[in-house]
Amino acid sequence: MSPEGNGIAERVRRLAEFLVANDLESLRIEREDEVFEVGRTPEYEHSVPREQKIVPAPVRVEQIAADRVGTFHFSRPVPFVGEILEGDRELGYVEQLGIRNPIRSRGSGRVLAVLQQDGDLVDYGRPLFEVER
């Protein structure tokens, strides 16, 4: 996907989230040469899972893994399944010999799974989170 296309998908997704969060039926934004229109239809509501409806672009699931060996801890606020990540946020850290090695989201997305618990020993390459990009 081109960076440009990616940007549009992202904006559409945010609008869709805004729509759902405010319980609106539809939303239309006009800006110079761009028009964004997002809406929900009753048929969709019942036949398709929510995520697919509001993000029409194909999803990519990425694993975020530990790159140092040590004790894993969540950063605050503690990430949760379903959380929408914006930008590069610190999800947790691997504590190794007193040094915090941050685990970052490396971009936006949605947390699909939290795979470790606070205080777990994690080794190299151990999956920590699954993020939908």
Binding site: R68, V69, L97, L121, D123
Partner: peptide, 23 residues
């Protein structure tokens, strides 16, 4: 526990990862 990728300097010679694993 896995301590790194195949090349030796990044796994079997990675002192911080090895000591951290032991602790």
């Amino acid at each position: 526990y896995c301590v790194g990728p195949g090349p030796v300097p990044r796994s079997y010679l990675d002192i911080a990862n090895i000591v951290s694993t032991a602790l």
